[in-house]
């Protein structure tokens, strides 16, 4: 197991290298002369100021040197400073990260607490009205775009509960309960697509397991349904669900950008959007790199977890 973990950690190196190259090329190379783009609107930019900015951004260096400088700084925790506010990018990210973490955790709770039981119930009552309604619900839940649902949620709240504070963002440090309350609806909206997918997946894996011989044996030897379901069926059905949950973290991270935009939450997704509008490439690069690295690490953890959960897998 230790060998496997070490191998996986080693495998991270090329992926993280690729991620950094992609972000570097996309943000610092493709757009062309960043200084021109940034200064484009301003009329009275002196040649000197532009030169200084170029030097500050290492634009006077050869491209590979720029990459090395950028990655070297990033590795030391220096993602540069915002080209607009002058604030260090990493500070902005760390300030905003708790909102994202909370949102993803709340969404995960919804997914696990609602998705897995509903999927199991549907499988258990296969072809009854319970199963059918859960399946139809899961199909619609899967195709409803999260940003539309978010917009409708905001609309309903503002139309029918004009005084409600369910959508106001309150910092956790100020009032933890109000903070979590304010994140419940955004968290649910963020969760819905994945939740519906997990319902369908759980249903189908549980159905597969229910057909296996050892389940019949367990029933034949007189075990109660509750015991059969919890110790024999669920335990073995959930392994693929865990893997998919890991992949779905990517969907959640992508969804953050949209959810934060509609609910006006001060997270990293919103920071990235604002940086695109403001052409603040330093912040954009830092934000995308950060979320990309987080996603890669989450997948690594899930992979290792998977190996723990399923003893059949040996490496």
């Amino acid at each position: 197991m230790l060998r496997y973990i070490l191998l996986r950690l080693l495998g991270l190196v090329p992926v993280l290298f690729g991620v950094s190259v992609l972000v570097f090329v996309a943000i610092w190379v493709i757009p062309g002369d960043i200084v021109d783009i940034m200064m484009g609107d301003e009329v009275a930019q002196s040649e000197k100021a532009m030169q200084r900015l170029r030097a500050q951004l290492n634009l006077d260096q050869p491209i590979w040197m720029r990459y090395l400088l950028w990655v070297g700084n990033a590795l030391r925790g220096d993602l540069g400073v915002s080209m607009i506010s002058g604030e260090p990018v990493l500070d902005q990210i760390l300030e905003r990260a708790p909102v994202n973490l909370q949102l993803v955790l709340i969404a995960m709770v919804f997914i696990i607490v609602i998705g897995i039981p509903l999927g199991t119930l549907a499988a258990y009552k296969q072809f009854t009205w319970v199963d059918n309604s859960i399946r139809v619900g899961a199909i619609f839940g899967y195709v409803i775009p999260n940003f539309w649902l978010a917009t409708i949620a905001v609309l309903i709240v503002s139309l029918y509960f004009p005084r409600a504070t369910v959508l106001d963002y309150v910092p956790f440090s100020k009032d933890p309960i109000a903070n979590i309350k304010g994140l419940l609806i955004p968290g649910f909206v963020l969760a819905l697509t994945t939740l519906s997918y997990i319902v369908r997946l759980t249903r189908s894996t549980v159905l597969d397991t229910l057909r296996l011989d050892y389940v019949r044996t367990a029933r034949a030897k007189g075990l109660g349904e509750r015991v059969v379901m919890s110790t024999h069926v669920l335990k073995n059905s959930l392994i693929p669900v865990v893997t998919v949950l890991g992949i779905q973290v990517g969907v959640l991270i992508g969804g953050l950008v949209l959810t934060e935009e509609v609910f006006m939450l001060p997270g990293i997704g919103r920071m990235i959007l604002l940086s695109i509008e403001a052409r603040d490439f330093m912040v954009l690069a830092g934000g995308v790199l950060f979320l990309g690295v987080v996603f890669v690490l989450v997948n690594l953890v899930i992979d290792i977890l998977y190996a723990f959960l399923d003893p059949r897998i040996t490496y």
């Binding site: 992926v15 990517g250 991270i253 992508g254 990235i272 979320l291």
Partner: peptide, 9 residues
Amino acid sequence: VVFAFPTIL
């Protein structure tokens, strides 16, 4: 590397 990024991002 493409898989290393969340799609929307």
